[in-house]
Write a protein that binds this DNA or RNA. Structure first.
Length: 424
RNA sequence: GGUGAGGUGGCUGAGCGGUCGAAAGCGGCGCUUUGCUAAAGCGUUGUACCCCAAAAGGGUACCCAGGGUUCGAAUCCCUGCCUCACCGCCA
């Protein structure tokens, strides 16, 4: 949620920045200003009547204490009470109208974010390693994995429909080993605190991170929309301290969690849907930070580096791109995507997205911290994948493949896998 | 799922339907005393919103949440949520 005061005091700035996301979005500023002024007028009226009623009620109490009559006052107060009820409903309605519009307005892109309307404008920030060379035509993970018995798409589809995967045998062990490797790396070497959170969350937690209200069609809902399967561990982790006031001494917080993620992927049928690349349920190791505002961008760089480290240790070629204003997620002010090279696809796959939401989510979840002066302020929240499992597996299989269809396992994984390669 | 108890400010814990945003203690902050520490004394100490250009100041709301009774609710009634205890069921 944006700060109302900012919209009120610098509407042009807000309008302009929203327009960099999507020309036309800036119009929302005028709508919100209108609702805000209506709400405030009503609230002022309501409060005047309240003040009057409180005063008269107090007088009634005093009259009664002196055993004097107070009938006239009582009648008057009763009338005020009726006005109050009517006005109160209008205030509540105005408040809700404003709030719901506020919740549907995305975050402002960072002031220096690259401007652009879609992914084609995303600049490449850096590249690590090189595309591996093969003296044969590299195969894709589906054919490699099927041959090695690493997963079973047909049976998974039989159970749950298309878009679900069952890892089998060494494939299952590969995922488990990777999860272990990732959690060990981030906890032991990068300083994150491990949490195993609920996978089912309340609606307000989804609203809190910005997954709702806009993207309800992407989530799996239960109980008539009161609960949702998490689309990412960002939701439970970021909400972990909701409604709390932390101390600046507790910041920054570094959290890591491995969870499944559930996504309907509505509207993406047919698009990069082959194999493991886009599925309805996948595992992910997620990083979340809560920081003081002045260090959040430094922390974003560190978090991105932590995610990149995964690929470096596994020897996977990747590039980091910055999302332009038009491609930014709803809650985010700045995002770096890490894309790993998948030789069998002949393309880069997004395996991590590291973002700074600034105070946008903190406002929504009412998360504050007391600074050194004892003042309550909103911290910044960050999140990044570290990393998504299926696409990491795609890259590992396709990059590690050998002519005979076996797969070399990168050195750091070998202990977890109890094997140096995958073969029939 | 059943029964019982309970949810008050950073914490502990009072609170007769009217002057209670809420006693007291602890903690925090400030000042005084002090060679330093400790201790003591005094003062201060919630959040959100509204009015005001801003500051000063004023006002409204908030004692788990939502309804209700009443001229008036922390206080009475109902519902829900949560916590604790015991029972049942269950991985």
């Amino acid at each position: 949620m944006l700060e109302m005061r900012l919209i009120r005091e610098q509407p042009d700035l807000v309008r302009e920045r929203l327009n960099t996301r999507d020309p036309g979005l800036g119009k929302q500023v005028d709508a919100i200003l209108e609702l805000d002024s209506i709400r405030r007028q009503l609230e002022t009226q309501l409060q005047r009547i309240h003040a009057e009623r409180n005063k008269l009620s107090k007088e009634i109490g005093q009259l009664r204490a002196k055993k004097e009559t107070s009938i006239e006052l009582e009648t008057k107060v009763r009338e005020l009470g009726d006005d109050l009820a009517v006005l109160n409903e209008r205030v509540i309605a105005a408040d809700e109208a404003q709030r719901s519009l506020m919740l549907s307005i995305p975050n402002l892109p960072h002031a220096r974010a690259v401007k652009g309307s879609d992914a084609s404008a995303n600049p490449v920030i850096r590249v690590w390693g090189e595309k591996p060379e093969f003296d044969f035509t590299p195969r894709d993970h589906v054919s490699l994995g099927n041959e090695l018995g690493l997963f079973d798409f047909e049976r998974a589809a039989k159970i749950s429909g298309s878009g679900f995967i069952a890892y089998t045998g060494m494939g299952a062990r590969l995922q488990r080993g990777l999860i272990q490797f990732l959690l060990d790396l981030h906890t032991a070497e990068h300083g994150y605190f491990e949490i195993s959170p609920p996978y089912l969350v309340r609606r307000y937690s989804m609203v809190g991170t910005g997954a709702l209200p806009k993207f309800e069609q992407d989530a799996y809902g239960l109980d008539d929309g009161e609960a949702f399967l998490i689309p990412t561990a960002e939701v439970p982790l970021t909400n972990f301290h909701r409604e709390e006031a932390l101390s600046y001494r507790d910041l920054p917080k570094y959290y890591v969690a491995q969870t499944p993620c559930f996504r309907r992927e509505a509207g993406s049928a047919g698009k990069e849907t082959r194999g493991l690349i886009r599925v309805h349920q996948f595992d992910k190791v997620e990083l979340v930070k809560i920081t003081e505002p002045h260090q959040s961008y430094l922390e974003l760089d560190k978090m991105t580096a932590d995610a990149e480290r995964v690929l470096q240790l596994l020897g996977l070629h990747y590039r980091v791109i910055e999302l332009c204003t038009g491609d930014l997620g709803f809650s985010m002010a700045k995002t770096y995507d890490i894309e790993v090279w998948a030789p069998g696809q002949g393309s880069y796959l997004e395996v991590s997205s590291c973002s700074n939401a600034e105070d946008f989510q903190a406002r929504r979840i009412n998360l504050k911290f007391k600074d050194a002066e004892g003042k309550n302020r909103y911290p910044h929240t960050l999140n990044g994948s570290g990393t998504a499992l299926p696409r990491l597996i795609v890259a590992l299989l396709e990059s590690g493949q050998q002519k005979d269809g076996s797969i070399k396992i990168p050195e750091p994984l070998q202990n977890y896998m109890k094997a140096a390669e995958l073969r029939k």
